[in-house]
Amino acid sequence: MTAPGQVSVETCVTPALLPLYDVKNSIVVVIDIFRATSSICYGIDNGASAIIPVAQVEECAAYHGTECLLAAERDGEVVEGFDFGNSPFSYTPEKVAGKTVVLTTTNGTQAIHLSRQAKRIVIGSFLNLSTLSHWLLGQGENVLLVCAGWKNKFNLEDSVFAGAVARRLTGAGFQPDDSSIAAMDLFDLAKDDLGAYLQKTSHSERLKKLGIEKDIEFCLNVDITTSIPVLEGEKLVKL
């Protein structure tokens, strides 16, 4: 445990910058608001026994013939031949309770894979914001907020969420880096109406073109789950 008063909260705005951070000495929070980490939080809260994040479609396909549900998404769409993608509406109790889901996505599962050297990896979304922030406050460890972004580029929605977490931690004595300060400023601009602020994002536009605006709206619900998915070995399970 890091000494009191010395804990930091840092924000990595794209996985491409992860080599610049001290991942091994941090609790990493992986963030992919539209839609992977929102769906993971929802699925675990709805009773999925585990979600196995894999980086490649081929790794997911290797589980064909098992009892696992297979979820694969690329560029916002379900990959042909898989059970579903990363829409939160695919992670209802009726579909996932008691099941293991193998998941690969364009951005979120890549960020998890690249963060594997962390002290611990947990999953964040607006859905579990308060539960996650409260837990982080009690750990006394450096926190690294890893934004999945879009294909290694910055995106707005992940950074706004990082700002929401950083705002809570900074208020309790964590020392923010400049990226966290910028993220907090973005969150302050967005917090009164997340939907209005984030409707202009590029990924929001991609999802709208696919006719799945309801996914965007759902992923901006705040505090509707109380579970924190944590990576244990190869599986994300309920903390």
Rank of each mutant, 00 (worst) to 15 (best):
G211M: 12
R116C: 08
V122D: 10
R35K: 10
W150H: 14
A48N: 02
S202P: 04
A72K: 13
T92A: 06
F126L: 15
G85M: 07
K99S: 09
Q175E: 03
G43I: 03
L207C: 10
L103R: 08
L69K: 14
L137P: 14
N142A: 02
R35G: 09
D192Y: 15
D215E: 14
A190D: 04
D45V: 07
P53D: 02
Y91N: 14
A166S: 13
R167F: 10
F218Y: 15
L144V: 02
E234P: 05
L103W: 06
V165H: 06
G124M: 09
G171Y: 08
L69H: 13
N25E: 08
A61E: 08
E73Q: 10
F34N: 04
S227W: 05
Q175L: 14
I121P: 11
G171M: 02
A36V: 09
T106M: 09
T170E: 12
Y42G: 01
I216K: 00
A97F: 06
G173I: 05
S125R: 04
S202D: 07
D75F: 13
Y42P: 04
D223V: 08
S90A: 13
L145F: 05
A172W: 06
G171F: 04
V9Q: 01
L18H: 02
K214C: 05
F187V: 07
A16T: 03
L145R: 10
C60N: 12
K151Q: 12
Y42I: 15
Y197I: 11
L132S: 03
E59Y: 08
A55C: 02
G47Y: 03
K191M: 13
A71D: 05
N152H: 09
A48C: 02
T37N: 04
A16R: 12
A36G: 14
A61V: 05
